[in-house]
């Protein structure tokens, strides 16, 4: 291959553009936002470029921000657990299905990923509102007289986020479940294990890597989700993401917003690190 360019030049040609693009539009903007977090807030000129840790002190001591972070992490855990509890039976079903049913179920499971997030959120808005479809049904069936407060609260946010997260979770689980050798289940069966014992002792332990990967995906997605909490929470549910949005738009407190960005990134990194520790072997 005598016509090949020198290696260095070729590499620069292949990797140069994307590196430059990332440096300018990813690294630089992130650096700038994070720099804001150590600047002083000013109501008049947005911020004063003077080093201060006041924003961090505020975020780490103010009960409002502490509750905000606790709520966001709690939401993440809750949505992850529910997605796991619902996603596992679905993934098992898909992994065990015959080829035709399997492709159908995979298509159904994955379809939400390809359908606009706004459409999915809107659907829940329509279903869960005070005069929404679910409340209308409940009243028509005579189960309730007054509308249940389904929408515009934490419940709606959790439902919406679980709906969005399920495909991510199921996808991670299907992969590992399908790779479990069917002979292992036969072997356990022949040794006298009941279905429950096979599930608990064989399938569950062997699918731990998938549970880990899916949980990581869902948790990080949930704590930084913005559209779903902002629409389904009806301005009554705040998470780190919705407050970041607010700080950078209406209330224009960029330094505190930037500090919350930092908090979100740290939580993310911590969870990724934790996952790496727990699943190092796998």
């Amino acid at each position: 291959m005598n016509t090949q360019m020198p290696r260095r030049a070729a590499l620069a040609l292949y990797l140069g553009p994307v590196t430059l693009f990332y440096l300018v539009f990813l690294v630089a903007p992130y650096a700038m936002v994070l720099r804001l977090s150590v600047f002083r807030f000013s109501a008049m000129q947005l911020y004063i470029p003077q080093f201060t840790l006041a924003n961090y002190t505020a975020v780490l001591t103010d009960p409002f921000y502490l509750a905000l972070m606790a709520r966001t992490i709690g939401l993440g855990v809750l949505v992850t657990v529910i997605s796991l509890l619902l996603g596992y039976p679905l993934a098992l079903k898909i992994a065990r299905a015959g080829p035709r049913l399997k492709s159908l179920l995979i298509a159904i499971t994955l379809s939400p990923l390809l359908i606009n997030l706004l459409v999915r959120t809107y659907a829940w808005l329509v279903l869960l509102g005070d005069t929404g479809v679910v409340n209308k049904w409940l009243q028509a069936l005579g189960l309730t007289t007054a509308p249940l407060p389904l929408g515009g609260n934490m419940f709606a946010v959790v439902v919406g986020l679980v709906h969005v997260s399920l495909p991510l979770m199921a996808l991670s689980l299907i992969g590992v479940l399908e790779r479990i050798d069917a002979a292992l289940v036969d072997a356990a069966d022949s040794l006298g294990a009941s279905r429950a014992r096979i599930l608990r002792k064989i399938i569950l332990p062997l699918s731990l890597p998938g549970i880990g990967a899916g949980s990581l995906l869902v948790f990080t997605f949930t704590i930084s989700a913005f559209i779903t909490p902002s629409l389904l929470g009806g301005n009554r549910v705040s998470t780190i993401s919705t407050v970041i949005y607010e700080k950078f738009t209406f209330s224009a407190n960029w330094p505190v917003g930037a500090t919350l960005v930092m908090a979100l990134l740290v939580i993310n990194a911590a969870v990724i690190a934790l996952h790496g520790r727990l699943f190092r072997e796998a």
């Binding site: 990813l26 903007p29 936002v33 930084s224 970041i244």
Partner: peptide, 11 residues
């Protein structure tokens, strides 16, 4: 987080 990328680019 996508929202952070959005904020960062906005800034």
């Amino acid at each position: 987080p996508t929202i952070v990328t959005g904020v960062a680019l906005l800034q």
